[in-house]
């Protein structure tokens, strides 16, 4: 008698607990969905604001910056600083800037340009070192009689976002030891590596991190990373 009561009570308690757990899981699920929804909406909103702001000021600003850069380039090329040639330069840079002011700054990312230039200059020495190493590697391979290569093709996805950083990554891969970028297929880099070891060197992602740092893409903090929901779920189950 008492045993059945006890069992029943235990049963009830278990059911209540189970119910409570179900509700809690549901609640947390809704919460995560909400956070992801709000995050998505926030991103949309920020993007829209940025796009609007960019469109308003970008056209004229791009034109002016392009014009100034082209004029500096003209002065460097021409080397004649009398008024006649300088006015020719102004006219020519004006025409070219008018035709191509949307080319030079087509997909500008938001970021401090001075910081990017500084970091890029800081990135160059490492890159030059890599190029020199790559060239000695090629020289060694070309001159060694047995030619110890075993080429393979590898693919990897990148976490970089803007097109200028993709281009930097691809050209850097081409210039570093033993690897060249062959293709980009659906966001995957197709890389031809001269040996297994060199491919592994690339897979560590050191260069990717450096380029992400240069173009200020490592500075994002996603809500998902801060609010690690998966761990709470694991506790419950």
């Amino acid at each position: 008698m008492e045993v059945t009561l006890l069992v029943q009570a235990a049963d009830d308690a278990y059911r209540i607990l189970e119910n409570a757990r179900g509700q809690a899981v549901e609640l947390l699920n809704t919460a995560t969905k909400l956070t992801s929804d709000t995050r998505w909406m926030e991103e949309k909103k920020i993007e829209a604001v940025l796009m609007g702001a960019q469109k308003k000021k970008s056209s004229l600003q791009n034109f002016v910056v392009t014009f100034l850069m082209l004029f500096a380039f003209w002065a460097l090329l021409s080397g004649k600083f009398d008024s006649f040639h300088l006015s020719l330069g102004v006219v020519c840079s004006f025409v070219v800037a008018l035709l191509g002011h949307d080319l030079l700054f087509a997909n500008v990312r938001v970021g401090d340009i001075r910081v990017i230039v500084q970091r890029f200059l800081a990135y160059l020495p490492w890159h030059v070192y890599q190029i020199v190493v790559a060239n000695f590697h090629v020289a060694y391979l070309a001159l060694s009689p047995k030619m110890p290569i075993s080429p393979k093709i590898m693919r990897f996805k990148t976490k970089l976002e803007s097109d200028i950083s993709w281009v930097t990554l691809a050209n850097s891969i081409t210039l570093t030891p033993g690897t060249i970028t062959i293709d980009i297929e659906e966001g995957e880099f197709v890389v031809h590596a001269l040996s297994e070891k060199l491919a592994d060197d690339l897979n560590t992602g050191e260069m990717e991190d450096r380029i992400a740092h240069v173009f200020m893409e490592a500075d994002h903090i996603y809500i998902q990373d801060v609010l690690d929901v998966a761990r709470i779920f694991a506790e419950f189950r």
């Binding site: 190029i131 790559a134 090629v138 020289a139 070309a142 030619m147 080429p151 033993g178 060249i180 031809h192």
Partner: peptide, 16 residues
């Protein structure tokens, strides 16, 4: 001249 195929030759010209 020495490398065996097209892609490996590109390693030589592209970097060198």
């Amino acid at each position: 001249i020495r490398f065996p195929d097209f892609f490996t030759r590109l390693h030589a010209t592209g970097k060198g």
